[in-house]
Each structure stands twice: as C-alpha cells, then as structure tokens.
Design a protein around this nucleic acid. Structure first.
Length: 420
DNA sequence: TCTGGGGTCCTAGGACCC
DNA sequence: TCTGGGGTCCTAGGACCC
C-alpha cells in the first residue's frame, strides 16, 4: 500500500500558522508579481473565487468580501514544507517528496501495525501538532489510486481527511464517483477526448480495452489505466533524480525597453541558476536565455526570442553563466519593444565531479571556484545576495511586485514572531 | 497599469550514418 | 511496374504535473 499525504490549501495554511486571527477567514495567495490567484482557503473557495484568476480583475470583489490577500512568500512555504516532510519521514523509511506540499509514503506491510485508517489519523495529527499544517491522506495499492483516494479524503467530510481503499469494493466505488477530469494524469486535452468517447467516470475509463488506451493516450495513459485497475506500474522514487533543466525566469514589475535593466535582470537570473547548480553539485553545458514582450497585449508589437549558448567547458560559475547570458542577450535584443519577461535556462547538466575538460580551455576555474565558494558561504550566513557580482546591479527596475508579502517568520531573525 | 514559474515525459519527423 | 534496410540523434510540439 501507498499513502499520499497532501497539505490542505498549503500556501494559505502557511500564512495562517503564524497569524491565527486568519482562522475561519477567506484567504488567497497570489502568484509572483501579484499576478493571479494560486491558492485559496476553503472560505475563499466557498465565495466562488477561481484558481488562476487575474488579481487586477477581481481585486474589487475580494475587497468587498473582506478576503485577505497575500503575495507568495516562497521562503516561508519552502521552510514549512521542509518541516512537514521531516515529520512524515519519521513514519516510514521510504518517502518520495513529490512536490512542495505532497509526499508518497510506502506503507508496504504496515497492515501489521493495525488499522491503516487509525495510523493515517495519527500521522495527520502529528503533522498538525508539529507544524500547524492540516493534511489529507489517501491510502491505496498504487500511486494513482492513492492520489484518487486522497481526493476523496479531502472532498468528503465524513472521512475526516483520511481515506483507505483496501478492498476491491471500495476501489470500485471510488472509481465510480470520480469523474475523469479529476484523475492524476488526465489534463484538459485528454478530458475532452474521453468525453467525446462517452467516458465520464474513472470506472468508465478502466473498462476500456488496453490497446485502445495505448493507441490514443500513449504508454503514459496505459500506465495510468493499469494503475487505476490496481496494477502497480509506478514505483516510489526515493532518490531525487538530478534535474535536466534549471530555469529562472520572471515577469518584470513593469515594462522595460532599454537593454541595461534587462541586463541586470538577466544577470540576476543567471546568478540564481548558478547557485541552484552548485547546491546540486552539478555543472551545465548549455545556457539558454529567453526574452518576451507581453503576450496578453496582442495590439502591441510582439517579440519572443530564445538564444542558446554552448559553453566550452561545463561550469557552475556565476561569472561564466552571467557572461554567457549577457552575450546571448546582446545577440537577440532589439530596441523599440516593451519587454515584459526574461529568463535563463541551463541544461546539459552533469555532476561536477564528472566534467569533461577541454584541451584549449584558458579560464582559470580554480579561481572561480574559490570566489563562488566564499560568496556562497557569506551569503548563507549573512543573507542572500550579501555579496554579489557587480552586473546584478542596484537599480532593481525589473523587480517584481509583491505588495502583500507576509514576514519570513521562520527563516529571518528580524522577522521572527513576537509574543507579547 | 495589472494575467506565475518551474518542471517531466513521449512522439513524430527530419537529418544523418552505414 | 520498379527506387533497401536498419539504425541514431536531435528538435519541436504536445501532453501532463505542482
């Protein structure tokens, strides 16, 4: 058996932990740049606020209903996630952290511990006591069924947030009450496709012949089909695989036309990518930049461009990645456009101890390594970007909007909560 | 004024090899 | 009439996830 533990309305719940006066009140959390709604408390959902709605279009309505609005605070959510996962790890040796707010746990053989419903409830209570975050738990024989079970636990009050699908009858009943658009792995396109073929519930879906599923939905769909019938196809991924791409991109807080502030933004994003690489003990061989105008304004001149630079030797040096990004920017930048977004993607990622050297390489990398090591050390103890490369700049014209940001209660000494 | 960011996997088709 | 067969690698695009 597998358990899927999912935090309820995670970002909204994080905001509540340190501000309990928000209990019972409607809360929404906005995306970067305060762009659109990406998390809602139950009270906000009940008001009919949609996921993904543009903030500027619903701002008035939110005010009218006294909805509390927050900019996303990933420092806080990341730290809270870590606390939840640490607690979960105490309950099983095998845990796959699937996303910032979800984990799969291997419950194989746990039936011997007694009723899984009781065990799940213990986990839920412990996570809440340790972190203040409410979770829902779905338990079933495969990962896809655990997902489905989790959804039932969350949507139906009578389960008290823990649902166990441990018999064929329970599984069949669960398949019948779950429509196909709520299956993990079925998105909008497949949903429409299935509806066109008269398939509405998950039960209808598992009745289809495997060849038909394979033909129309590729091996991914077939795997899902088998999983929903109780045949295990997806294993727990206990060790996080090395990433194939690392991307840092942002919309700007306002339009940029001059190249200089864009250079500043690009330098910052390249620097972030370098830091992420070093954290993973990896290096990259390709740097790609992207630069966009505002796609939501079709009446304005549009320019979308990507540029890839191949590095002579794989690296995670902040300095080299900034240089490559700025070189790429120079090649594609055109004046006269109102730019809205840019970013840096690094790929061709390999472990840093398996670097293929280049015979004609002239850069003294040991020097770069010394510099970045010291930079990382200082920034870790004194705060992000305490020491940085000059091209990261100080004007911050590109900075995103975050007008409703809460404090970093758990990661900054000067923002720690004070109890009077 | 204002519409997020960061990922994965699979497939088809083209270019190229012998 | 008829124009080989068997591969690899890369890219773009589409599907999906949180």
């Amino acid at each position: 058996m597998y358990a899927l533990i999912d935090c309820n309305n995670f970002y909204a719940s994080c905001e509540r932990v340190f501000n309990p006066s928000l209990n019972g009140k409607p809360i929404v959390v906005l995306s970067n740049n305060d762009g659109c709604v990406i998390a809602r408390s139950n009270e906000a959902k009940a008001l009919g606020i949609d996921m993904g709605g543009a903030y500027f279009m619903i701002e008035e309505a939110l005010k009218k209903h006294n909805v509390f609005v927050f900019s996303s605070n990933y420092t806080l959510y990341g730290d809270m996630s870590q606390r939840v996962m640490n607690t979960l790890a105490e309950f099983t040796p095998e845990i796959e952290v699937y996303s910032i707010d979800e984990s799969f746990l291997n419950f194989e053989g746990f039936e011997l511990l007694g009723d899984l419903k009781i065990y799940g409830t213990t986990i839920r209570n412990t996570v809440f006591r340790n972190t203040g975050i409410p979770v829902s738990i779905g338990i079933a024989p495969t990962k896809a069924l655990a997902k489905l079970s989790n959804r039932i636990a969350k949507k139906n009050k009578e389960y008290n947030h823990v649902c166990v699908l441990d018999s064929q009858e329970k599984i069949m009943a669960a398949l019948k009450i779950t429509t196909v658009d709520n299956i993990w792995g079925i998105g909008r396109a497949y949903h429409n496709f299935l509806l066109n073929h008269g398939i509405q519930t998950t039960y209808d879906f598992v009745q289809q012949p495997e060849e038909w599923v394979r033909k129309n939905m590729s091996v991914v769909g077939l795997r899902l089909h088998k999983e929903l019938k109780g045949e295990k196809c997806l294993e727990l991924e206990l060790v996080a695989m090395a990433k194939q791409n690392i991307c840092t991109s942002r919309s700007f807080g306002r339009y940029l036309t001059d190249i200089d502030p864009i250079k500043e933004a690009m330098s910052n994003f390249a620097s972030r990518c370098a830091l992420k690489l070093r954290k993973d003990k990896s290096v990259c061989t390709l740097v790609q930049i992207l630069l966009h105008t505002n796609k939501h304004k079709p009446d304005q001149p549009q320019y979308f461009v990507n540029k890839v630079i191949t590095l002579p030797v794989p690296t995670n040096s902040t300095i080299e990645l900034i240089q490559a990004s700025l070189r790429a920017l120079d090649l594609v930048y055109k004046p006269g456009y109102r730019y809205m977004k840019c970013g840096v993607i690094v790929s061709g990622i390999v472990p840093e101890d398996r670097v293929q050297q280049n015979l004609f390489d002239t850069v003294d990398r040991s020097k770069h390594n010394k510099v970045t090591t010291i930079m990382d050390k200082l920034n870790k103890s004194l705060g992000a970007d305490f020491v940085k490369v000059g091209s990261l700049g100080v004007t911050k014209q590109w900075h995103l909007k975050a007008e409703k940001l809460s404090q970093c209660y758990s990661t900054r000494w000067d923002e720690i909560i004070v109890i009077k």
